[in-house]
Design a protein around this nucleic acid. Structure first.
Length: 804
DNA sequence: AGCACGCCGACT
DNA sequence: GTCGGCGTGCTC
């Protein structure tokens, strides 16, 4: 039998032509080390690239040419488990993305690599040339050559074989280290040393004494700080031979300096107990059952999660808890850390790449057993998962909006199946898709209709803003909301105000001629930002200083239209001059830790009013907030998206749930121009069931999800006509395939038809989910390979969450 | 993607 | 004659 010294590698070139395994031979010295799931460096063409080993060693290859050797191994153990290797294939196939892309998103960024190119002199280079381009060195990087203007010359020398190019792969993987101290002398020796130290060298005397106490034990250099002994003294000690300093790899801990209150296990109430028992039964039976836990806001879902996670730990298993956007739910993280301490690893986008890598590593090597985080945490490198939870399962952030366009819910089900464990989908307002599956018995429905503090859900009032206008009230605030804010704050309680800004732009217009300021690269209005007096494009980032005169008519009567958080904040300052406002939106929360700081201000009652965009609707739990006001409820209602009503209903219900979470009763005021729309009236009455039924009728009538599946194609090109014509070709291919029960909508211009000077067309394909569909989609994907050569890009989004 | 190879126009 | 433009096709 032949030796098995060939392996399959996926190379780091995200294109259609290279989206397949390449065979490489294993050099003798790596033979016993190489395993599937490891990262390797391979020669590919004239370059060196990162690759993922995806197969066990095999004896034969179909490749006709001569196999190349793997250049180097980048890991000492696999970074992708066999489960992950299989999962990547599944994701790539279902979402029409490249396999490398799938593997990349499953791993922390630190495991990506940088590519560098270096020029090296060969033996045929002249002394003169060497001196000119390399001076005293034996290499020069491509970037440096470019900077110094040598690039053209060096490329010429390359042609004459006077220099060669070295393609390097630089692993970004770095371990953080700390200085540690290894005592080198025993007690008696140190005692002798004590005599040799000058009596005035107080620090050194102290150091010797501490070392004597350590009795040979290794400790961190930090340990000496409490004796006021610092690095200079330790270095002196090392020179005298008392100790040696070495680098100890440590985990970066983003929560190191944060004090977390211990959270105690609570007594479960009857409805929680029922949900707990149902999931525990599935866990005991190792069944991959999916539960839809539908509990009203404040019903105590989190406590159920925590106790079930405890169950998993007790069995020696691990758990994953997904939240929509972790930086918005610090309270959830605190509760988990308070209950489970170091067992929790938190993964989210505001961590540095190094911190993220270390949290990931803790999960991989078993130091932590609970993964908490946003969407990508579903790929947590755990080995024996006992439970997966998606909190607020209806949130659209669970679907990634660019490649690979996976949905965390689907990945969760896939992993649950592999691990034989249940999945909990938790929400007060489940997505229609999930609720329909629960209705059909595909998921098990668990209901928690009561609030745990036994407070009734807060009364909700709809305020007709058309009336306000008729009464010549031109503020963003209705008279009622103003009065109630005053009364609430007079009682020493707090107010939360939400501005529903989705799909809404602040724009600037000339009052004389009606000219509006548009982005030169995109078909959208520019948004005016008050704080830096700039007009900005929210799609391509274009910005310009606020003009003083109208470019069309030259007049100076320019005015900002629309409602932004900044403008509302100004009005609040006008109406309630001695109250403090905390404003939370994309602008004020960009910096690391700013969420926590702002929420702490509310928790400590240093502020009276919390004003924010929809980010404040999620997971906040402040007992002293008793009034919730929604400034403009209906801006999300008439978006070109069949889920517009569902989103509005979910948002209003969720925001209403922020009121009256403690012992004080709360109230909610919703300002609207559509007080009769069912999404609003049913949110007003906390009536999910009627909303579900009403909305399902509408979806059935119009053949939308969950009755039909949707695939969205987006075609883009710098030329308007080419983009349109290609979209028509896609439509043609779908029509030709002629699959029964399908429907084509479009092609049509995208809502924003031009972004960054690229024209966008989209096309929707509704189907009932049979195998023939996948073939058509694959055929279009294959055609797209040719189109991409002409810079025409076609993207396929299976079950899209947005239609903009 | 990036690079080599290859076939046509406008230069030292 | 040669240099260099970017179209085409390959990378184990």
């Amino acid at each position: 039998m032949q030796a098995k010294n060939i392996i399959e590698v996926i190379v780091d070139v995200p294109t259609m032509q290279t989206d397949r395994p390449y065979d490489y031979s294993i050099p003798e010295d790596l033979k016993d080390l190489i395993q599937p799931g490891m990262r390797v460096q391979v020669p590919f063409g004239s370059r060196n690239l990162l690759g993922y080993v995806i197969s066990d060693p095999k004896a034969t290859t179909d490749f006709e040419g001569e196999l190349k050797d793997i250049t180097a191994l980048l890991d000492d153990e696999p970074v992708l488990s066999p489960e992950m290797l299989a999962l990547g294939k599944q994701i790539a196939a279902e979402n029409f993305c490249f396999l490398v892309e799938a593997y990349h998103t499953m791993l922390p960024n630190l495991l990506k690599v940088d590519y560098d190119k270096y020029f090296l002199p060969t033996t045929s280079i002249s002394y003169r040339e060497h001196a000119q381009y390399f001076s005293d060195f034996n290499e020069i990087s491509w970037a440096e050559a470019e900077e110094k203007g040598y690039l053209a010359d060096l490329i010429k020398l390359k042609k004459d074989n006077k220099v060669s190019i070295d393609y390097r792969v630089e692993d970004r993987k770095r371990y953080k280290t700390e200085k540690w101290v290894q005592p080198l002398m025993g007690f008696d020796q140190l005692e002798d040393e004590l005599q040799n130290v000058r009596k005035t060298a107080k620090k050194q005397l102290a150091l010797v004494e501490v070392l004597m106490e350590l009795d040979g034990k290794k400790v961190s250099a930090k340990y000496f700080e409490e004796f006021d002994i610092h690095m200079a003294t330790l270095k002196a000690g090392a020179e005298k031979g008392w100790l040696s300093l070495f680098d100890q790899p440590v985990n970066r801990d983003p929560y190191a300096n944060i004090v977390i209150e211990k959270s105690e296990k609570l007594q479960l109430q009857a409805q929680q107990e029922r949900a707990f028992a149902a999931v525990k039964t599935a866990m005991d039976a190792q069944k991959d059952e999916v539960f839809l836990l539908q509990g009203v806001t404040g019903s105590g879902k989190t406590e159920v999660y925590l106790q079930l996670i405890q169950e998993a730990l007790d069995k020696g298993q691990e758990a994953i808890l997904l939240v929509p956007e972790i930086s918005l739910t610090p309270q959830m993280v605190n509760r988990l850390k308070g209950r489970f301490g170091d067992m929790v690893a938190v993964l989210h986008s505001q961590l540095s790449t190094g911190e993220h890598f270390d949290e990931w590593r803790k999960l991989k090597n078993g130091q932590a057993k609970i993964a908490v985080g946003a969407r990508s945490s579903i790929f947590a490198p755990l080995h024996n998962i006992g439970l997966i939870i998606l909190d607020e399962e209806h949130e659209t952030t669970y679907k990634q909006s660019d490649n690979p366009r996976y949905h965390a819910r689907e990945v969760a089900k896939w992993r649950a199946n592999k691990h034989g464990c249940p999945v909990i989908l938790g929400s007060a307002t489940p997505s229609l898709e999930s609720r329909a599956r629960a209705q059909n018995g595909v998921y098990t429905l668990l209901e928690m209709p009561e609030r745990s503090n036994h407070q009734a859900l807060p009364p909700v009032e709809l305020i007709d803003m058309r009336e306000e206008f008729r009464h010549k009230n031109y503020y963003q605030f209705s008279r009622k909301l103003r009065d109630e804010m005053q009364a609430t704050m007079d009682r020493g309680e707090q107010v939360a105000l939400m501005l529903n800004r989705r799909g809404y732009a602040n724009f600037m217009q000339c009052r004389d001629c009606g000219y509006t300021f548009q982005c030169p690269n995109c078909d959208v209005s520019l948004t005016y930002h008050y704080h830096n007096k700039q007009l900005q494009c929210h799609y391509c980032g274009y910005n310009a200083a606020r003009p003083q005169t109208c470019p069309q008519c030259g007049q100076t009567h320019l005015r900002e239209f629309g409602t932004g958080t900044e403008k509302v904040e100004q009005e609040i300052n006008e109406l309630f001059p001695n109250k403090t406002v905390v404003r939370m939106d994309m602008d004020t929360t960009r910096r690391k830790g700013s969420h926590e700081r702002m929420l702490k201000q509310i928790a400590d009652k240093k502020a009276d009013i919390l004003l924010g965009t929809q980010m404040i609707a999620k997971g906040l739990d402040f007992p002293n907030i008793t009034l919730v006001g929604i400034i403009n409820a209906d801006t999300s209602l008439y978006l070109p998206d069949f889920r517009a009503a569902e989103r509005t209903f979910q948002l209003l219900t969720q925001m209403s749930g922020r009121a009256g979470r403690g012992d004080l009763s709360g109230q909610v005021l919703i300002q609207t121009y559509n007080p009769d729309h069912y999404a609003l009236t049913l949110a007003q009455h906390h009536d999910y069931d009627t909303f579900y039924q009403t909305e399902m009728r509408y979806r059935k009538l119009n053949q939308y999800s969950p009755y039909f599946y949707t695939v969205r194609f987006t075609v883009s090109n710098f030329d308007d006509h080419t983009a349109m014509a290609t979209a028509a070709k896609v439509a043609h291919m779908l029509r030709e395939a002629n699959v029964a029960g399908t429907k084509i909508i479009g092609p049509a211009q995208s809502t924003i038809s031009r972004v960054n000077n690229q024209y966008y067309y989209q096309l929707l394909y509704q189907h009932r989910g049979n195998q023939a569909i996948h073939q058509v989609l694959q055929a279009i994907q294959d055609r797209a390979q040719n189109w991409s050569k002409d810079k025409i890009y076609v993207s396929i989004d299976v079950d899209p969450m947005t239609f903009m």
